[in-house]
Design a protein around this nucleic acid. Structure first.
Length: 99
DNA sequence: CCCATGACTGATC
DNA sequence: GGATCAGCCATGG
């Protein structure tokens, strides 16, 4: 198989825990799931994220991963998360911190 | 074991 | 805010 079952599941849980209308960064998910590095988050989503709210996960810059930008921003817009210049205002929509 | 790859990040310039 | 670079670490060749 690929990533350890435990970690794999924790990452999926972390992604599921992000409420609609909010977003989180790969780093946030990694921290919540206690993953060693954000890269693993991307890896898990890539191979097993099709049934998760993966569109709520953004890079630290507030932009989605390049190859997904289009689609992801549409999904976010549909849940009420506006993107200006293809980028989301993390200070406003980032889940967990502030508010 | 070494090397490349990748839905990443933070520091520098 | 973009371009570079160095860490990061699981996976596969």
């Amino acid at each position: 198989m690929s990533v350890d079952e435990q970690l794999h599941e924790r990452i999926r849980d972390a992604v599921r825990s992000v409420p609609a209308g909010r977003v989180a960064t790969y780093g946030d998910i990694a921290e919540i799931a206690r993953a060693s590095t954000p890269r693993l988050v991307g890896r898990v989503l890539s191979e097993d994220g099709h049934d998760l709210p993966w569109h709520r996960v953004l890079r630290a810059s507030g932009r989605p991963a390049p190859h997904l930008a289009r689609r992801q921003l549409e999904l976010l817009r549909a849940e009420g998360v506006p993107a200006v210049n293809d980028k989301v205002d993390l200070r406003t929509y980032r889940w967990g911190v502030r508010d």
